[in-house]
């Protein structure tokens, strides 16, 4: 019996928290976390819907920005027919897997993209007073549905390219499952890198510029077949900033351009390793948090 309460109106038996079991990891805890995530995430969507105009303009901006990338690739292929032996439908597939991946990532992880703000304002304080893992609390602050337009764009491109590739026999129906898996891995790899970059904020506070390095530049680079790059850049895009493992590695094998069935497994391995490393980084960062804001 912990507290000896004076004149307590509320008996200890009505107090949740202290005596409650199950804040250790376990299936029940995971289920409870998912339920909480759902409650928080839907609250964030409700909050965003208070600003419908912002939602619409943000969706339009996503669409237009994505369209520039596509226009760029399309114009080049219209003029020169292939990039390093990849035709427009094949490059389109790389594009689609990457855009669907980043679209899904940004829907669920917009708070990581804005994570610098938590450090600058000291808002991370209020994350740490909650009885849940800080990453869960941060991610559940915002689910940004306007980012779906990026993924939709990728799906649109896939809807054009996949039938063409099926017709020409470069893809089989069975490959579509692997493509879906590649999209999921691509999303996870964007998360891995995004989480690592956000973790850096615990030490260096300002990460907006860093995110250009870790996300924008390599994401743009992996819209093209990696054959065009020199060895060192290819290594970077397959290891440190492994977006190439998400789209190029599996798509290359599926299109019969080389590699073995391991090309379909590498993305899963990369996801597992990457998640382990960046979650470790996040936890180390949390312990080093300086709360210098406010």
């Amino acid at each position: 019996m912990r507290a000896a309460r004076r004149n307590s109106e509320i008996g200890p038996e009505t107090r949740p928290g202290a005596a409650r079991p199950g804040h250790r990891a376990g299936p029940r805890r995971v289920l409870a976390a998912l339920k909480l995530y759902w409650i928080l995430a839907s609250a964030s969507v409700r909050a965003a819907m208070q600003y419908k105009f912002d939602f619409v303009t943000s969706s339009i901006i996503q669409a237009v920005t994505g369209a520039i990338d596509y226009y760029f690739v399309a114009v080049i292929l219209w003029k020169f027919k292939t990039i390093a032996g990849w035709d427009i439908y094949e490059v389109g597939l790389l594009f689609a897997v990457s855009k669907i991946g980043i679209g899904i990532y940004r829907v669920f992880s917009e708070e990581l993209e804005q994570f610098e703000r938590y450090m600058v304002t000291g808002d991370f304080d209020s994350v740490l007073v909650r009885p849940w893992p800080s990453l869960l609390v941060v991610l559940s602050r915002r689910v940004d549905l306007s980012r779906l337009s990026l993924a939709l764009q990728g799906m649109g491109v896939a809807a054009v390219c996949v039938p063409q590739l099926l017709r020409s026999g470069k893809l089989t129906w069975g490959d579509i499952g692997f493509l879906a898996l590649a999209c999921a891995c691509s999303a996870v790899l964007f998360f891995v890198v995004g989480l690592a970059a956000a973790s850096a904020a615990f030490w260096i506070t300002r990460i907006d510029e860093l995110q250009v390095f870790t996300q924008n530049a390599p994401a743009t680079a992996t819209l093209h077949p990696l054959e065009i790059y020199p060895g060192w850049l290819r290594v970077v895009l397959l290891t440190a900033l492994p977006f190439g493992v998400g789209n190029y590695v599996p798509v290359r094998y599926l299109l019969g351009k080389g590699g073995t069935w391991m090309n379909l497994v590498w993305p899963l391995i990369a996801c597992a390793v990457g998640l382990t490393v960046s979650l470790k980084l996040w936890h180390a960062g949390e312990a080093a948090y300086q709360s210098t804001g406010s």
């Binding site: 080049i76 020169f80 510029e209 924008n216 530049a217 743009t220 054959e227 020199p230 850049l233």
Partner: peptide
């Protein structure tokens, strides 16, 4: 720092154009 990032973008485009230009 930003300049380094835009140089990397430039690098990506340079290799792209080297690859596609006949």
């Amino acid at each position: 720092i930003n300049s380094v990032a835009s140089a990397i973008f430039g690098l990506v485009y340079i290799y792209l154009w080297k690859a596609v230009t006949p």
